[in-house]
């Protein structure tokens, strides 16, 4: 059986990202190890209670992985929100919205009713999008 182990976001600053995902989103640190010889830091976080899936917070690489122009372009694209989306689920979208708002997370929009449930979204400090959905029985007529 093949399953998802880790997903990955490019981040501009791993310390900022770590603070955001642990202190604001409330996730756990799965691994934070710096390989000095490679000038590389492997940083993995994930939600408590879901130990077998993690999110790797990967620094935007420079040479020799990426030439300086490409590295700058990638950083710019991520900042523009083109880095992709992480899709999360919650049992109670409004409660999660309230709790995370109280911790300082700024949402793109308040929870909205959709045919598939109730959802909202926010961004990490680098601009990566995170969608938070409370899944309900599909109802084509449900809307905000």
């Amino acid at each position: 059986m093949i399953r998802i182990a880790n997903a990955q976001f490019w981040v501009h600053d791993q310390d900022d990202a770590l603070r955001f995902y642990t202190k604001m989103l409330g996730w756990e640190v799965r691994a934070d190890v710096t390989m000095d010889a490679w000038n590389f830091r492997w940083l993995s976080v994930g939600p408590g209670g879901q130990d077998d899936v993690g999110l790797i917070l990967m620094p935007i690489p420079g040479p020799p992985m990426l030439d300086p122009d490409s590295s700058a372009a990638l950083a710019e694209l991520v900042a523009k929100g083109a880095g992709g989306t992480l899709f999360l689920e919650t049992n109670d979208c409004q409660a999660s919205y309230d709790e995370l708002s109280a911790r300082g997370i700024q949402f793109n929009d308040p929870p909205a009713r959709q045919p598939y449930g109730i959802d909202t979204s926010f961004r990490d400090p680098s601009g990566n999008n995170i969608r938070l959905t409370q899944v309900l029985d599909f109802d084509p007529n449900r809307s905000s």
Binding site: V33, T34, W38, W42, P61, P63, P64
Partner: peptide
């Protein structure tokens, strides 16, 4: 932790390559 961490081979190969 540095020995136990599961850094995928592709990542190690990309980042551990010495810089010119």
């Amino acid at each position: 932790a540095s020995r136990m961490v599961r850094i995928p081979r592709c990542v190690a190969q990309a980042y551990a390559r010495p810089q010119n």
